[in-house]
């Protein structure tokens, strides 16, 4: 929190000057701050937050029903799935201006980018398909049929797999990234929401909203090796609806957002046991690390805020109001 005062000074200097927004980011960047982008599903906007200072910098209109959000590998472009505009909107992070749309197909919700930054893979909930987009050309390359209501999507860091989870079919569909075809399916617990590979590409973590579980799948066998359940005193089982997942690069700890349980579960990523719960805002949905992995940001859909967790201290340090229905989050250095 040493950078706090610097940031405050910087902002004071540019206060009220809209055009200076990009300068603020440049200054925050050099001071080691995080720029946190949060999609606001009901406000049709993206909130831009200084994560270290825990300050809302700006809210920009982005299009109808923004949900999934991610940055390009170089951090220059921000991608936002605007579900009701049937597109993925591309925003220049330096200017905070929309520069183009990607042809995502109908009702894009979540998407993932491959390690090379070449292709983007989108879940099309209404069409039971995954759309593959060439980022440089801005064109659809292929549509891959998957189960009913695809939601979670992840690319393995080694580039071998794209996994799509379908909420009504209840499967993880394993798409071979070279052939762009489903070559295997793993039946998972009801209403799978998010999928996340570990950094070593050896495990796939999948959350099930209805069963209230986290499943750990072995990538080589594509079988479930562990089913993690959650028990929180004073919280009924029905309230525990796991959604977003993040695992640290060393696979020491994993974090799972538990929806209306208003908690983030901390998982020992070696033993695959729950070790702690953080109390955050209401209906916690997605989460993201700061680039230095010292903080974790969570979107809390019903309390209209984000929570900031200090990972060294292992505690929630701040909650910050950002707007209506915070959904997804991406963080830029």
């Amino acid at each position: 929190m040493r950078n706090d005062s610097n940031n405050r000074e910087t902002r004071r200097g540019t206060h009220g000057v809209v055009l200076a927004a990009s300068l603020v980011f440049a200054a925050c960047g050099s001071a080691g701050a995080d720029t946190v982008y949060v999609t606001l599903e009901k406000d049709n906007a993206v909130a831009i937050v200084d994560g270290v200072a825990a300050k809302l910098l700006k809210t920009m209109s982005v299009g109808k029903r923004p949900r999934g959000i991610a940055l390009s590998r170089d951090g220059r472009e921000l991608y936002v799935a605007v579900s009701d505009d049937d597109a993925i909107r591309v925003i220049d992070t330096a200017t905070s201006k929309v520069v183009r749309d990607l042809p995502s197909g109908d009702d894009p919700e979540t998407f993932a980018i491959d390690p090379e930054g070449t292709f983007l893979y989108v879940s099309n909930e209404d069409d039971n398909a995954v759309t593959v987009i060439d980022l440089a050309k801005g064109k659809q390359v292929k549509r891959i049929p998957v189960g009913v209501e695809p939601e979670g999507i992840a690319v393995s860091p080694d580039g071998r797999w794209v996994v799509s989870t379908s909420e009504t079919t209840n499967m993880a569909h394993w798409i071979d990234r070279r052939r762009l075809e489903v070559i295997d399916n793993t039946l998972v617990d009801p209403r799978p929401r998010a999928a996340c590979f570990t950094a070593d590409s050896k495990q796939l973590w999948v959350t099930s909203e209805i069963a209230g579980t986290l499943l750990i799948l072995d990538v080589d066998t594509r079988q479930i090796v562990k089913r993690v359940s959650f028990k929180i005193p004073g919280v009924t089982a029905e309230k525990i609806q796991p959604v977003g997942i993040r695992v640290d690069p060393e696979r020491r700890r994993g974090y799972v957002a538990l929806g209306p349980a208003n908690r983030v579960a901390v998982i020992d990523a070696q033993k695959l046991d729950v070790v702690n719960y953080f109390l955050v805002g209401q209906r916690v949905w997605h989460l993201e690390f700061s680039p230095d992995h010292r903080r974790l940001y969570t979107t809390n859909g019903l309390s209209n805020d984000i929570s900031i967790i200090d990972l060294a201290e292992q505690k929630v340090v701040k909650s910050l109001a950002v707007g209506q229905y915070p959904w997804g989050v991406a963080v830029k250095p």
Binding site: G105, D106, N124, D126, D127, A129, R143, I144, P145, E181
Partner: peptide, 10 residues
């Protein structure tokens, strides 16, 4: 395998 636009494939 549907390589066609969404509306048609549905």
């Amino acid at each position: 395998v549907t390589d066609v636009p969404a509306k048609q494939s549905r």
